[in-house]
Design a protein around this nucleic acid. Structure first.
Lengths: 233, 233
DNA sequence: GAGTGGTCTAGACCACATA
DNA sequence: ATGTGGTCTAGACCACTCG
């Protein structure tokens, strides 16, 4: 484990355990470097990480302070992972509607930077939180990165499978959001009526090498989903 | 100007000017530190910054690469500023519907961490891009942070005014997103029909000292707005 | 194995906030 | 004036990628 990660984890755990309120002042940098027996730069790096994650904020000349924990039940848009982490207070389950190997269409091939007609896994899932459907997800994975998939795996957390079994490490992701009116078929799957609102996201997730490995289109149930974004300086 | 900022700006300018494509390899760290005459740590910090901003990605053991410039015309959700920067290719204008000093309601007082009934500026604006309305914005500013406002100022960029004239520096922001069906009044203002979809955001912007200084509720026109989010490791 | 980015250190100095 | 976080350095060593 990296030292700055240890420091960050330890500090975050401390804040959560003590349930420190927003604005609570934390020990200064010098105290921290004595406590953890690491250099100032390592402390600084740990604090920067926590700041980016919305756990603390730092004010030059003043100190280090706890940042408000976000409202519960909101999907956090900031990390390239699935919902399993964000919605940990809920029981997230999936129903696989479709799972097959297909030749890829031009539009999706472009996003994934692969040849048109090369093979991809197409996965269509309904996702539930505490038994309530909150989104419909259609994903495309090039077989060169995801050589095997089945319904059993897709019923669980795909991202766990990718990380654990396939040893894929994700890097960055691009997200495009639109608000639309539902068409008939999608509405039916979400237990809504056609013409009702929905948020859709197109997401292109890249491996840490920069190669695209997932194009997904997700349609959210507007009554059963809400979103949080932490924006940092 | 900070050295790592100079390096970051210079590299970003280079990428934009040369219109380098995604995946283009940039000079390695050693070449960069020779070119800019700074230490390795400073280069690293500049690169980390660019990585967070979605301009590049780094692969350990391999190199530094250009990341795809995002699609045009999307509102970027990642910085605590207004739209003037994001939609620079558009002409953003505002129509002030309402601007007054009011005693603050309980709910908003809680968000802004001020006393109920203390004075705030309430500003309601319609915002246009190239003459098309894209959102309705209702903002609340405590007068202790924003002692003066008028219609002329609010017709322009409020954030410029806050930064330039009031010397306020923003820190972090919390955003909460919901998708709703429009009510009659809001729909009329956006030239839509009641029941049509909309994305709403609640945003609490804090100063760099951690004090809340803006609570805003924004309702977006679902046909005239779309959003981008860059998600990084 | 050579090349490349990532971590970590110890210490100097700077910039801002608070009283 | 003091305390606090932020920047920057020079250099050692680690971890990963790729031919």
């Amino acid at each position: 484990m990296l030292k700055y990660q240890e420091v960050a984890n330890s500090l975050e755990a401390h804040i959560r355990e003590q349930q420190l309120a927003q604005g609570t002042k934390l020990p200064n940098v010098e105290q921290l470097l004595n406590e953890f027996h690491v250099s100032k730069s390592t402390i600084t790096k740990a604090l920067t990480l926590l700041e980016q994650n919305g756990v603390i904020y730092q004010v030059q000349g003043s100190g280090i302070f706890v940042r408000q924990p976000r409202r519960k039940g909101y999907i956090n848009f900031h990390k390239p992972k699935g919902f399993t982490d964000d919605l940990e207070e809920f029981c997230v389950t999936s129903e696989v509607l479709s799972l097959e190997i297909q030749p890829v269409f031009a539009e999706i091939a472009k996003h994934l930077k692969i040849d048109v007609g090369s093979d991809i896994y197409y996965v269509k899932r309904l996702r539930f939180a505490n038994g309530h459907v909150f989104c419909l997800e259609e994903s495309y994975f090039p077989i060169k990165h995801v050589p095997f998939l089945n319904t059993e795996i897709a019923t669980g957390s795909l991202f766990h499978y990718f990380a654990q079994a396939l040893k894929l490490t994700t890097g960055f992701a691009d997200n495009y959001l639109h608000v639309i009116q539902l068409d008939n078929d999608t509405a039916k799957l979400l237990n809504l009526n056609s013409g009702e609102p929905a948020l859709t996201t197109e997401q292109i997730i890249h491996l840490s090498t920069g190669e695209p490995f997932d194009y997904s289109k997700v349609t959210y149930h507007y009554k059963n989903s809400q979103f949080f974004m932490s924006i940092n300086k």
